[in-house]
Every structure is written in C-alpha cells, then in structure tokens.
C-alpha cells in the first residue's frame, strides 16, 4: 500500500465512519430514551435514499403509501382511544397530523414537477415522506408495550426490521440506485483528490452533530429527552410525557437515518436491504460506547469506518467478517472492565 492508496482508503473510511457515527448517535439516543434497540435504523437509510431516487425519476415513491397506511392506522387507534376517554378535543389534532398531512403531501407530490425541482426541494420532499414513518412506527409497534423488557422491545425491533425489509423489496424492487452528487466534481489537493460529495458528508455530519448537541443542551425538548433517558418515572412525575419523548426520539432517529441515506447514495449504490448492514455497523460503534456515551459511540463508529475501508484493501472478501468480529474484542473488553450491577431490569 503506498501513501496515495492509504490516503484514498482513509478518505473512504472517514466518509463511511461519519455516517456510522450519525447512526450510532441515533441508536444511542433511541436506546437511552425508550430502551428500544432500534434495529430498523438502517431501513431508514435505504428508504431515504431510494425515496429520493424515485422522486428524481419523477415517480411518486411507494413509501408514501406506507405513510398513508400507517397514518390511517394511527388515526384509527388514537381516535378510538380518545373517544373511549371522552377526549374529543384531541380528535382534530390526531386527524390533522396523521391523516390530513400525509394526504396533503400526496397532493403536493402529484401536482409538482418532481424532476424539475431543485435538489434541495427533492431532498425536503423525500424527508417529508420518510421521517413521519419514525413516530408512526413508534406509536404502532412500540408504544403499546413501552414498559416491556429490553429483550421484548428488541424482538419487536427485529420484527419491524423484517417487515420493513420485505416492504422495501416490494416498494423499490431488487435493483440498486445511486443519486447524483449534491455538487459534482472533485477537489484537487495535490497528494490526493477529494470528491465534493465527501466534503458534503463530512460537513453535514459535523453540522448535525453540533445541532444535536445544541438541541440536547439548550432546548426544553432536548432536556426533556435527557430527563427521560435518566429516569423515566422521575421525568413522568415532572410532567414529561414518555410517549412524547419516544415519538420525538424516533422522529430524530428517522431524520438522521433518512438523511444519512441521502448523503451517501451519491457515493455508494444502495439496495432495499443495504441499510441493515450499514445500521449494524453504526451499532458496533454504539456498542463500543456501551450504548450510553455519545462521544465514544461516534469515535467507535469512525473506527469501524477505517477498519472497514482498510480491510477491504487487504482482504476484501472478509471485510464484513472483520468488521463484525471487531465486536468480540470490544465486548470482551467491556465485559472485563464494566461492573454490571446484578439488579435486573
């Protein structure tokens, strides 16, 4: 390996690592707030990218039907519940958010020239379609058993994951897609060249991380999420709704996932099931951080990115084996250093 290749691989590792870091942050966030190990995180990556690709091809993406269907289901369940409790005042809001908004989105999609739209408009539309899936999934799959054990929630996560994978194949077919770069071209740095998209990825990740940091440190909702993560019962006693916290964390996770997919789809071809492995690599990073520490999770994710790109040079067939085997020394180290209390969940 010469210096040139090492730089190139390093660049690759850094780009992937930045994405894994974003996903790792989302996973830690969701786990801390809801105790859900969010296996379907990766599906949002694929859905985001493939939805954007569909929009750019001038098609109404099939993910919209999923939003409409889930929205209808949420409306039905929430309205029934509201009626049973005599809380008819809540009905307009339930219907507006879950039924009317998706319908308006549909109307919008069929009335604008999708292909002619500037990229930023297409991205906004793609996010508007995919992100609501996060809170809707929380409402339908997790909220009814929010107090169940971590294990039960994990099994539900895996079930949601396989459903989304199956639907992904149905929606997008088996073919992969790539979307055009935000800015085409490369930057000449003398020793190496840098794609502008790489810069986009790094810059966006950095901005998102800083934004999350500010959100948790400075806003009331961010603080509410942190409070819920620290102590669910205590937070509830302070008037913080754990349901709201759950939905909010799922919204953020969906946003981070979908946007990550949109960021990388110009540099890698994404298939309906690519998200799973990408999400799991974020997981390896998150586990390095013990599913608690945000900075260590991000650093771990970068490590995964570098390990992946360098191992693809030395033993490309064993790339995945190497990356996922990394988890074993990590777990070993954590198991020997952490003092897990005997108290059960």
């Amino acid at each position: 390996m010469d210096f040139q290749i090492a730089l190139l691989l390093g660049q690759d590792g850094l780009t992937n690592g930045a994405i894994y870091a974003l996903l790792a942050l989302a996973l830690v966030l969701v786990f801390a707030v809801t105790r859900v190990i969010f296996i379907p995180q990766g599906e949002f990556v694929a859905y985001g990218a493939l939805t954007l690709a569909a929009l750019q091809a001038g098609k109404v993406p099939a993910t919209l039907w999923l939003v409409l269907a889930l929205g209808a289901a949420v409306t039905a369940i929430d309205s029934a519940q509201a009626l049973r409790h005599g809380a008819t005042r809540r009905l307009p809001r339930i219907i507006a958010v879950n039924l009317v908004a998706p319908l308006l989105l549909w109307l919008l999609l069929t009335s604008v020239d999708l292909v002619g739209l500037p990229l930023i408009g297409q991205i906004a539309l793609a996010l508007a379609i995919v992100v609501p899936l996060g809170p809707m999934l929380y409402r339908l799959a997790y909220q009814p058993i929010a107090e169940a054990s971590v294990l039960m929630l994990l099994i539900v996560s895996v079930a949601v994951h396989v459903v989304l994978i199956g639907l992904g194949l149905l929606f997008f077919g088996a073919e992969g897609t790539r979307t055009p770069a935000f800015t085409e071209g490369t930057l000449d740095l003398g020793a190496t060249t840098l794609q502008y998209q790489t810069l986009w990825i790094l810059a966006s990740s950095a901005v998102l991380i800083v934004a999350l940091y500010a959100f948790f440190g400075r806003t009331i909702y961010g603080k509410a999420l942190r409070a819920t993560a620290l102590n669910r019962t205590g937070a509830r006693l302070m008037g913080i709704s754990t349901t709201m916290a759950g939905k909010l964390s799922f919204t953020l996770a969906a946003l981070i996932g979908a946007f990550s997919g949109i960021l990388i789809s110009p540099v890698t071809t994404l298939y309906y099931d690519s998200g799973f492995l990408i999400g799991l690599k974020g997981f390896v990073g998150a586990i390095i951080g013990g599913l608690v520490s945000y900075p260590v999770a991000a650093a771990g994710a970068l490590l995964v990115g570098f390990l992946e790109s360098y191992s693809s040079f030395y033993a490309s067939a064993y790339k995945e084996v190497i990356v996922f085997t990394l988890i074993i020394p990590v777990l070993l180290w954590r198991s020997l250093t952490s003092h897990h209390s005997e108290e059960e969940e």
Binding site: S149, V150, L280, S335, H340
Partner: peptide, 18 residues
C-alpha cells in the same frame, strides 16, 4: 453474559453475520 441482557442478542447478530 456478564453484561446486560441485550448484549447477548447483539453479540449473536454480529456472530451470525460474520
């Protein structure tokens, strides 16, 4: 198994893929 209950399933996911 010395750690929280969810590390085993996560470990087995990684081991299954590898």
């Amino acid at each position: 198994l010395r750690m929280g209950g969810h590390y085993l399933p996560l470990g087995t996911i990684a081991w299954g893929i590898s």
